[in-house]
Design a protein around this nucleic acid. Structure first.
Length: 846
RNA sequence: GCCCAAGUGGCGGAAUGGUAGACGCAGGGGAUUCAAAAUCCCCCGCCGCGAGGCGUGCCGGUUCGAGUCCGGCCUUGGGUACCA
């Protein structure tokens, strides 16, 4: 008897696939193509369980599609620009480029043993000049089509280090290195005009039938289409009227102040006045995140300016308020405290009036500390509505108000979107250089395409804060591409989201001399199945959808690829506890799980120091709470790791990584190997036993196929456990058992491809298991002749009966009512109602 | 704050509105063995001696029937536009 030796089997079959060139993708006519893609990794250097889970899922799909006769493209690359490389350079010295490419090499080494069906020939990293040079070409094309422009926008500014900080580098409103209170500062930056496509991006969500509803909902809310009223308040002092936008114009009678953003032109015009400057400085403290702004203490400053209410003529004060965003609407609002909690808090704080404009139908208590904000679809009673409404829903009132204001020529109904343009400028080194030159004479001049790629210089240091490109004269100072006079290169680089917004298209022709190749893109696009973490539900996926449209406009993708991902699956995250201690400088130090041991329920380091355990959270490189899957592969083999990550949890759910279970997975694979090895081909079995086994085989084919197609991998694996047990216990003959075991190998092949090949070969399967046509379930074999039907009495299960599967309802009802448990409860009475669901259940209502 | 999810035994989880707990882990018992490893078999939600009762985060609703649908909460997680 031979034993299951994973290391030997896996090396052998990986060689066999490599030799056969099984996963090299080429355009082929006559076979349907299938493009499966997992979100490519950031090269942190350590493969973690989340990666294994993600790529194994993609691999199951890819291998299943190969077995069902598809020409499959399954590529892999690296999202290689970004902050961690610069952080590493600052922390441990060295160069981001060296660090990144070393990590890529390490990760490829860690991925290859998994036996993934990847076309490694197509691999690239976004920090390859060949890739980002094409990205620069795309940028120039977008510029040409008016899809990119410059404007001012705020960034997190560290006033001590004098650098821009990423949101992640702001901790509790302070810079992570300097500890200084962060300020919001305006800079001129590049933007993609994604807002022009807001309506289209929203509308097209409807067509994405194979996307999770929750992702579409999140994107729809993010784009945030709303219809509201735009109108102007006349200033009492005769100055420029203040235009406001509101989605609740029906509450106009409840207005008690006009609020403007600290970045509003009126606020800016008041700069210079000491009190105003002091307030603006205060209002600009803190980070730029929506969360920071929304949860910050509400601050206001009375400008002294008065405006006239357009309907009542009443005078309202104009306040600068820190919670009003210049980016949304017009940067000015009217405050209606009775029906908006934020406005109410503000008015209570600054002692402004609160005016109820409507009440609940059955309650007319004036607003106190809690604003009355009913759903727009709810009917309310109006105190006095200028359009003459009494009882009406918010929606009706909004429409009536817009009509009323339009008729009077006081304002107009306007549709606005929450979605803002995508700021792509980053004041950092390790990113794709923005290919433009700033010339005093010519202004902003695009770099010539023949000069691309604009390559990052290698001779940079990270010993002082700030962007090294800013202080690199030989790279920065260049002649103007237009007039030839001395000029300066743009030293900002692109957001790394740009890199990941078109890599899927580049995979179709990764070495092309243009961003894409039309024939290849036509053939391979779209991505048939995209798989990745749900944390990318909004930004990455929205940006990629925008990019596909923009690339189509510039002729780089066909019309049909405007929605680049036909089907999307968002897997849950792999979470793990975070282990934290404090460094000598008081900053937190995060430890890898393998550095920590649990002793008497307490976590300690090797040197005995106690570690603070923070509850499970997304595995993250900045928190070091990642688990190295390599030791599972080393001790049990890749198939065990693959089987294990698929078996334990539904793929869309978060999974907390634990060590137990890998052992069990390995045992099971050994069992399959042994069962297959021990089948006696000559053994005779009864026809009944053969049929029983083959019936179970067809049920397994059916259930596993359904499971694979619907991402129910854990359920498919549970079925395979059951089928393995059935096979082990079966008294069927050798021929039937060999057929069943070969089918088992095929069904397991997407998940445990190496073991499947070994078993397949042992049982005389023809060629490679990976290429064997996927088995098809025989519908006739799926139904049993007898079914067990539970009997409920008043919805509670009391008994069960076994009846032929197609017995008619009346007959079933008769047998059920005759059952002694039913007789006992009925006690001679007639039941009120009997419900028979054929093949399912009987419910007697007594 | 706002948007989106999730919550079922000791644990991971299963369940087209139709027998709640499939399958696996852990645990308990047994077989095999000189012994062990490996393997195989049985038990395993809670309360109760039992009959039986109670059970899918909490409260309410729809239904012959709710883990599943609806309303309201609670908790946890993700996103919140410069982490990727």
């Amino acid at each position: 008897m031979s034993r299951y030796n994973a290391a030997e089997i896996e090396a052998r079959w990986q060689d066999a696939w490599e030799t056969a060139g099984l996963f090299r993708a080429e355009r082929k006519e006559g076979k349907p193509k299938y493009y499966v893609l997992e979100m490519f990794p950031y090269p942190s250097g350590k493969l973690h369980m989340g990666h294994v889970r993600n790529y194994t899922m993609g691999d199951v799909i890819a291998r299943y599609k190969i077995a069902t006769g598809h020409n499959v493209l399954h590529p892999m690359g690296f999202d290689a620009f970004g902050m961690p490389a610069e952080n590493a350079a600052m922390a441990i010295g060295g160069h981001p480029k060296t660090w990144t490419y070393n990590n890529i090499d390490d990760m490829v080494e860690q991925m290859k043993p998994l036996g993934l069906s990847l076309d490694w020939d197509r691999m690239f990293a976004t920090c390859d000049p060949e890739y980002y040079g094409q990205q620069q070409a795309l940028f120039l094309d977008f510029l040409d089509k008016g899809l990119v422009y410059r404007k001012n926008a705020v960034v997190n500014w560290d006033p001590v280090d004098m650098t821009v900080l990423a949101n992640e580098q702001v901790e509790g409103g302070r810079g992570w290195r300097s500890g200084a209170v962060v300020e919001r500062k305006e800079l001129t930056q590049w933007f993609f005009k994604i807002s022009d496509m807001a309506d289209e991006l929203l509308g097209a969500l409807d067509g994405l039938d194979n996307w999770p509803a929750k992702v579409k909902l999140m994107q729809a809310n993010w784009i945030g289409k709303s219809r509201g009223l735009q109108f102007a308040f006349e200033r009492v002092d005769g100055g420029e009227p203040i235009t406001v936008y509101t989605t609740r114009p029906d509450t106009l009678n409840g207005a008690s102040f006009v609020g403007i953003s600290p970045d509003h032109p009126i606020a800016k015009a008041m700069e210079g006045d000491a009190a105003v400057d002091a307030f603006l400085a205060e209002a600009r403290k803190g980070g730029t995140t929506e969360e920071a702004i929304e949860t910050a203490e509400k601050l206001g400053f009375d400008t002294g300016i008065k405006v006239k209410h357009p309907l009542t003529g009443e005078e309202l004060p104009v306040w600068i308020a820190n919670f009003i965003l210049m980016d949304y609407g017009t940067g000015a609002i009217f405050g209606c405290p009775a029906h908006d909690q934020r406005d109410l808090d503000f008015c209570r704080k600054y002692d402004l009036p609160v005016i109820d404009t409507f009440f609940a139908l059955d309650d007319d208590t004036p607003v106190g500390k809690v604003a009355f904000v009913p759903a727009k679809s709810e009917k309310v009673r109006w105190v006095s509505h200028f359009a003459g409404l009494d009882v009406a829903t918010g929606e009706e009132a909004i429409n009536a108000t817009i009509d009323f204001m339009e008729a009077k020529g006081l304002g107009e109904g306007v549709t606005k979107f929450r979605l803002r343009d995508w700021g792509l400028s980053r004041q950092r080194y390790w990113g794709c250089p923005i290919p433009v030159v700033h010339c005093e004479a010519c202004g902003v001049v695009p770099e010539k395409k023949e000069n691309l790629p604009v390559v990052l210089p290698d001779d940079v240091t990270f010993d002082v804060p700030g962007n090294p490109l800013d202080r690199h004269p030989t790279w920065r100072d260049v002649p103007c591409p237009s007039c030839g006079k001395a000029a300066k290169r743009e030293t900002d680089t692109m957001d790394t989201f740009v890199d990941s917004s078109w890599y899927f298209a580049r995979f179709t022709a990764p070495r092309a001399a243009t961003p894409t190749n039309a024939a290849e893109a036509d053939y391979w696009m779209n991505v048939d199945q995209y798989i990745g973490g749900v944390e990318h539900a909004i930004l990455h996926l929205l940006y990629a959808r925008f990019f596909a449209r923009a690339m189509h406009i510039c002729g780089h993708l066909p019309e049909s690829a405007k929605e680049p991902f036909d089907a999307l699956f968002t897997q849950g995250m792999v979470t793990h506890a975070i282990y934290k201690t404090e460094g000598a400088d008081g900053r937190p130090v995060y430890h890898y799980p393998e550095e920590v041991t649990l002793k008497d329920g307490k976590a300690v380091l090797d040197d005995g120091r106690a570690v603070e355990v923070i509850p499970s959270a997304k595995m993250s490189k900045s928190k070091n709470n990642v688990v190295n899957p390599l030791h599972i592969i080393e001790s049990y083999g890749a198939d065990t790791a693959r089987w294990f990550v698929l078996s334990d949890s539904p793929p869309e759910r978060d999974v907390e990584w634990t060590a137990s279970g890998a052992e069990a997975a390995h045992k099971h694979l050994g069992r399959v190997y042994r069962i297959a090895s021990e089948i006696d081909a000559q053994a005779q079995g009864s026809e009944a036993d053969d049929t029983a086994l083959l019936r179970e085989m067809h049920k397994a084919i059916h259930d596993v196929t359904m499971g694979v197609e619907s991402f129910g991998f854990n359920a498919a694996i549970a079925k395979l456990y059951g089928f393995t047990t059935t096979l082990a216990k079966s008294n069927a003959g050798g021929a039937a058992k060999r057929e069943a075991a070969r089918t088992l190998a095929q069904l397991m092949c997407p998940m445990t491809p190496h073991l499947a090949e070994a078993v397949w070969e042992k049982l005389g399967g023809e060629g490679l298991c990976a290429l064997a046509p996927w088995p098809v379930a025989d519908a006739a074999m799926l139904v049993d002749d007898e079914v067990v039907m539970p009997i409920q009495i008043n919805g509670k299960r009391r008994a069960e009966i076994s009846v032929p599967k197609d017995m008619d309802k009346a007959e079933v009802e008769k047998i059920a009512l005759a059952h002694h448990a039913v007789q006992k409860v009925l006690d001679g009475a007639t039941p009120k109602k009997v419900i028979v669901v054929p093949g399912r259940i009987v419910n007697v209502v007594a």
